[in-house]
Design a protein around this nucleic acid. Structure first.
Lengths: 345, 345
DNA sequence: ACCTGCAATCTAAGCGCTTAGATTCAGAAG
DNA sequence: CTTCTGAATCTAAGCGCTTAGATTGCAGGT
């Protein structure tokens, strides 16, 4: 690998100044055609690849958007591989990421993704932030002051519920309405009355979903619980935190779960205990991750428009890059109940 | 968004030189503890986020690896969303990407992904190449001279079969052996004798798989076809190219497909024609993509260790970054037959 | 009191680009 | 002829870091 060619090399080879080389690439219209061809030919001959670092430094933008993804696995996790169940791979974040990819390409941006370094080295978020023109984050996992700091330099949008921190833009979905809708489906179309909500109230998504659950019960004139069942967790061999259910838990008519992840864990537990779903008990989730389509029975859930969310994240970022003075935005997208097998349909 | 703070600002605020600021971050051990704390405090106070461009320029590395992903969709494609079948999202590339992500994080690198710009603007690969210390590509989609050029500046590994272009490292799988194995399963365990191989010979993967198919037939003493059935394609509304089968195609006992994608298309066609799988005809794929687990019947296939491949890609890149003189590597990973419903099991 | 050695810090020279503004030059206008 | 104009190109000043090598100051040795 010979020393990489620079503008200087190309300029010398083409017999022009470095300014002309740069111009030939960035504003081809400002350079006479014959000169331009000459420059391109030299560039090709020298295997010239412009340094994005130099460019970024010189003109203050990088043409890259960032996504700080979180890590669902414990550092010690086994090298996951043959995962028939899709519990490990295309997760919520991955689908959002997909949306961001599509939108980035459309706008001629690249996407940079980082996650908490396993090596435990330096401050990864800041590192990424230094590389990009705008950053998307899933905030639960980040010290708020880091976000604060970064938001002072580039636009940041958080994919999460309520904007406690108002310097950031937020993208979220109608958690409350969605949960109310599935719950009503269970009550109305499957005549379930003894419903158990499973899942924590944290992060804020959980609280909103529980509220939706209660809305539905209240509207149906059923007894409205004060609290959800917040399950214990254990760590699976693949490093995921999986829900466990008390052995003596009285069976409800339906488990209404705060997330698909919880629902799928419960499906597994029930299968292990020989409880038939949906015959004996219904189960519903929230999110619409791929694993819900692979599970048996397939999981009835509330689908977030994840690709769309990713796309929106990018658009919001680009707007703020174009006009840094723009106030933070807050978007709530609609969700959709997806009826599959686990509810009894 | 106030003007972003730089080393100079931090240095002034802390009453030290910029060298000390830089040192405090990069080689904390070389700076007295009290000074370091002072610097960190100032950095925090000023919302300092170091510019990765400046850093990259100064020390010639960026701490980022790149993946040039291809775009499976036509530019005009509808904004894909509610995709119950997983035919659009977690694709082959996405799983490899996942492996790269994990490995990158483990090594304190970030991952940058780019794809052909929809805007049709500048040369995206080169753009990405300029940003990263090493690049992974799926070559079919790239002009070889672009690769050549980039490989002259940074290490490049191609996720693909045979190294015609020996300046690049290659990662691939045992395409021939894997295809032979499923084919033998069909012959041995399901007594199928009239097998039809569907899929093109291009890229090289296809050729190797067809060869494996023929190996199996030959070994079983069956008639060995000279050519595969190379199907026509049509474009789905979501922008994918889908296989079509001639109306008058005589039904074989099994469709042995070069890829899961082809197999899933065929599954769909057969369902539409009322042909029962696997009762009337068996179908197998190759790759092990998620959609194969979601399809009904579930698809018997040959699984590539995609996450592992992604991981390996990263490791090869890092080796070449550490020692640019290292000759290109060529790795072939084993595959695994995954028996599901579509073969008759 | 002076020198040595070492740790802590600083000075200054890039890294490879972009771009404002200066320069050059050919042709048009006077 | 001279002057003016605008296109094409060039000169040079950064952009915000890293780092080799110079400088400083202080503890210890003589």
């Amino acid at each position: 690998m010979a020393k990489a060619a620079t503008v200087y090399d190309v300029a010398r080879h083409a017999g022009v100044s470095i300014a002309t080389v740069s111009m030939a690439f960035r504003r081809p219209d400002r350079v006479k055609e014959s000169t331009r061809d000459l420059v391109f030919a030299s560039a090709r001959a020298l295997h010239y690849v412009p340094s994005a670092s130099a460019r970024g430094l010189a003109d203050g933008r990088t043409g890259v958007l960032g996504l700080f993804s979180f890590d669902y696995f414990l550092p010690s996790a086994a090298p996951l591989e043959p995962d028939e169940s899709c519990r490990d791979f295309p997760l919520y974040v991955d689908e959002i990421q997909r949306g961001m990819e599509l939108a980035c390409w459309q706008h001629d941006y690249a996407l940079m993704i980082g996650g908490p370094s396993r090596a435990g080295g330096t401050d990864t978020v800041t590192d990424i932030a230094g590389h990009v023109d705008g950053l998307a984050v899933f905030p639960q996992t980040l010290p708020p002051d880091a976000l604060e700091r970064i938001a002072g330099r580039i636009p940041v949008v958080a994919v999460s519920e309520p904007p406690q921190d108002d310097r950031l833009s937020h993208i979220t979905v109608d958690n409350r309405g969605g949960m109310r809708a599935v719950t009503e489906h269970l009550i109305r179309d499957h005549a379930r009355r003894d419903l158990l909500f499973v899942g924590g109230l944290n992060p804020a998504e959980g609280r909103a979903r529980f509220a939706g659950f209660r809305d539905a019960l209240r509207a149906a004139g059923l007894r409205v619980p004060r609290k959800p069942l917040v399950p214990q967790t254990r760590v699976t061999p693949s490093g995921r935190a999986a829900v466990v259910l008390p052995d003596d838990l009285p069976m409800p008519e339906a488990f209404v779960c705060a997330t698909d992840d919880v629902a799928l864990d419960i499906l597994e537990i029930l299968a292990a205990r020989g409880v038939r779903v949906p015959a004996e008990v219904a189960v519903t989730g929230f999110d619409g991750i791929v694993a819900g389509r692979v599970a048996r029975p397939t999981l009835t859930t509330v689908r977030q428009p994840m690709v769309e969310m990713g796309r929106l994240v990018v658009e919001v970022l680009l707007r703020h890059i174009a006009d840094p003075a723009r106030p933070p935005e807050f978007c709530e997208l609609p969700v959709q109940v997806v009826v599959r097998e686990s509810c009894g349909c």
